[in-house]
């Protein structure tokens, strides 16, 4: 025999108070998961092994409201909206120079250790300077040929938020 508490939990009576709670809960979920903590279903291999194809994460939009972007942050980059976004890692900030030599990353001429990179590559990219208001983003999976990997500098207003999980 089930206790009245459990019965009430699974089969609540449709009182006005209950319906109000349901509406408030629905609105709160809509606001949180629609605007603040956007659920992401990862498709593709460009961020492996950090984020695998088919994995699940969240985009935390307020991350850069009060703090600047930092090197190694994983961010979402939008196209025209938030339904489809790119997941990338920031490797260089405005005014810095970036370069790849035999797969090794150099920022301002200094080699940067990238512990998150497991698939080493032979990427070569001549030195370039990041424009003001832009950041340089790249995926963690360097196992793919450079021509097939989407990376480069993007305007900061394209960054929707940081990635959690």
């Amino acid at each position: 025999m089930s206790s009245p508490i459990i019965r009430r939990f699974f089969f609540p009576s449709l009182t006005r108070r209950y319906l109000l709670r349901l509406v408030v809960l629905g609105l709160t979920c809509y606001l949180i998961f629609g605007y603040l903590l956007i659920p992401l279903r990862i498709q593709g291999h460009s961020m492996e092994p950090t984020y695998r194809d088919g994995a699940f994460a969240f985009c935390w939009r307020p991350q850069y409201l009060f703090s600047p972007v930092q090197r190694f942050d994983v961010v979402t980059v939008r196209f025209t909206g938030r339904s489809v976004m790119l997941l990338k890692r920031i490797i260089a900030l405005p005014g810095e120079t970036v370069e790849f030599r035999q797969g090794k990353l150099f920022v301002n001429g200094n080699q940067i250790k990238e512990p998150y990179v497991h698939h080493h590559s032979d990427w070569n990219l001549a030195m370039r300077t990041i424009d003001p208001g832009h950041v340089y983003v790249v995926g963690d999976n360097r196992g793919t040929p450079m021509a097939r990997h989407r990376f480069g500098q993007v305007r900061m207003n394209r960054i929707v938020g940081g990635v959690v999980l």
Partner: peptide, 23 residues
């Protein structure tokens, strides 16, 4: 096509901004 925004600068012309996704 996702996140499609349509703007009408003229009666007989429209500008679409959209994201094409291939799977």
């Amino acid at each position: 096509f996702h996140d499609t925004v349509i703007d009408f600068p003229d009666d007989d012309r429209a500008e679409i901004m959209t994201t094409l996704r291939l799977e």
